[in-house]
Simulated scan of single mutants.
Amino acid sequence: MSHSQSGLSNISQVLLRTPHLLSGQCPLLVNMSEDGFINEYLALNPKSKISCYNTNFIDYSAISSRYKENVHCVFDSQYQSKTLHDLVIITFPKSKAELPFTLAMIANSLAPNATILMVGEKKGGIQSSKKVVIDYIDNYQKIDSARHCMLFAGSIAEQARSTPFDLASWYKQYQLNINNISLTIASLPGVFSQKQLDIGTELLLQNLPQKMSGKVLDFGCGAGVISCFIGKTHPDCQLSLLDVNALALTSAMKTLEINELTGQVFASNSLSSVTEKYQHIVSNPPFHQGIKTHYHATEQFLSGIKANMLPKANITIVANSFLRYQPIMEQYIGSTEQLLCKKGFLIYKTQC
């Protein structure tokens, strides 16, 4: 491995072990992170016109800011292209349900003879990908296994290429009834608690401030459950919903629409896109990113959020009981009380 490759992830290193498979005139990279792989790719294929499709705003921002000139970057819940790609490299998603959705979506943007490369960490479940891709990829074969990762290759199934993609058909909907408030939740594959309400959010909804009005920020909104509950319970609130994931943001917009509510829905890397001040901040903050447990985004949020709180504003969050958020909230926001400890979750509330 060259010195320039030293910062590459295991996934990128495995891909670069088979350079003969990487040649493409207009390759599409799906949900790759920015670790220098694109530089290595362009060194091998200097004339390639690369497109990057990311559903994660952090990865999209890193790639688009580093490769302004020579890479076409897309952050959206749907990828569409007039150009037909002759190669696609897909990072195996942390949610298996997202994979058929991704393949169905990109199928119309691939040339008939396009090579599909699927790469991922073994502990992420890529070994069982053959069952998941059966309707979408033909001739799916394992190519390499190294650095705790696996690489598969195949070609797009003609049936998948000839089927128009309809985003609406991929929503799962379910009904909720909490404190006599009825909601319909719409969620795309891979979005947190796609099929039912999770315990943490349910406990949070039962422990929100009794009176709420003014601007509300829902941090890590997922499919928009918390905001819609607040919107129905406290119609005077103005809702803002933030997430890092494009599929979550589109799901939240759909959930607001179904429940006849309005809100400002936007992408943000922690607080990077937050410019307003709020009366109430609510969150079931994310702490799983990929296979490893990460708290960084939430700790960044809790240590920086006071600048976006109005006088006498409050923040209510739910967290797994093993996560020690109370000292961070005490240090950066103010006196913090534990409202509840139940079923492995804690509810914290801080008044500014």
Rank of each mutant, 00 (worst) to 15 (best):
S64M: 06
S65R: 14
G36S: 12
I50M: 13
N113F: 10
Y79K: 00
V71Q: 07
T83H: 12
S95E: 09
L87S: 04
T83I: 05
F37S: 06
L22K: 09
A97Y: 15
I134Q: 02
N113Y: 06
V71E: 14
S23M: 11
S61R: 14
N39D: 13
D138F: 00
E34G: 01
S64Q: 08
C26I: 04
G124H: 10
K131S: 11
F101Y: 15
K94T: 10
Q127E: 14
T91P: 03
S9C: 02
C73E: 12
K94C: 11
C73K: 08
V133A: 04
E34N: 02
Y60M: 09
K131M: 10
K96P: 08
P27V: 01
H20D: 15
A111L: 02
I63T: 08
Y41V: 08
Y67C: 03
V71L: 08
I11F: 05
L42V: 04
F101L: 03
A107G: 03
C26M: 09
N70P: 02
K131Y: 13
G125K: 03
K142S: 09
K94H: 09
A107N: 04
L28F: 04
A97K: 14
L21D: 12
P46S: 09
Q141L: 07
T83M: 10
I89N: 05
Y79D: 06
S61V: 10
T83S: 08
A104T: 01
G7L: 07
N54I: 14
G24K: 02
N39E: 14
N108A: 04
A114T: 09
I90Y: 00
R66Y: 06
S65W: 13
G120C: 13
M118T: 10
H72W: 14
S81Y: 05
D144T: 00
T83G: 02
S128F: 05
P112M: 00
S145L: 09
V30R: 05
L44A: 11
R17D: 13
K131N: 11
N56R: 11
Q127F: 06
I11T: 08
I50R: 02
V132S: 07
L87T: 04
